[in-house]
Design a protein around this nucleic acid. Structure first.
Lengths: 97, 97
DNA sequence: GCATACTAGTTTGTGGTACAGACTAGTTTG
DNA sequence: CAAACTAGTCTGTACCACAAACTAGTATGC
């Protein structure tokens, strides 16, 4: 109806997408701090973004301690770009008429 | 957390706000056609926008037939402006940083 | 060697809400 | 007198965000 990508539109995920779009990759804790989300929430949003194919979740170890790395996929970057375009259009057309 | 106005953020309402922002006032049927929402849906979204103080609902008559006019309040226009600014910021900062 | 705290989550439960469809009320038309 | 139209409101369902509680393993302090 409005062609808005609901997966990205959700504020929490939009924030995560924006954060990830600005870097090459990030770890879980960094996202946690930057976003202010709770762990459970962040985890579930990341899962949803992964399901959508927008984010790659790379579970590794820093020594013996688990370390989770996140990065946008090509598809994720393109979806985010499309979202920006859609939003831009909606917000722009509203001003002029 | 992201300072996004949830009332406006919802796509259906965002569309309505954008439509109303482009005109001085509109009637129910026009909004119905432009938005593609169902009547029930449009009605409930308008009620929510009214509750938020963003939209004025003016029920009159065209002859004997009911006619409902909608327009953004000053507060509505300013909230929409703020929303655009917030969104613009989020989407902009994502690219460069 | 035991307990505490940290990383990195998953699972569960609750509450809110978008959405569509059924229903209402009055009005014109056949 | 009945059927259809305008202009809505009301109701129920189904999803989904969010937080909190719980899990599992590792390092650290005592």
């Amino acid at each position: 109806m409005t062609d808005i990508d609901r997966v990205i539109h959700e504020p929490a995920r939009l924030l995560v997408m924006a954060l990830l779009n600005g870097v090459k990759e990030a770890d879980f804790l960094w996202l946690l701090n930057q976003s202010g989300l709770t762990k459970g929430n962040l985890s579930s949003h990341l899962s949803k973004l992964e399901e959508a194919g927008y984010v790659e979740i790379d579970k590794t170890f820093r020594g013996k301690v688990p370390l989770t790395l996140l990065r946008l996929t090509r598809s994720g970057r393109s979806a985010f770009g499309a979202y920006r375009k859609t939003m831009g259009g909606l917000l722009a057309k509203a001003s002029g008429a």
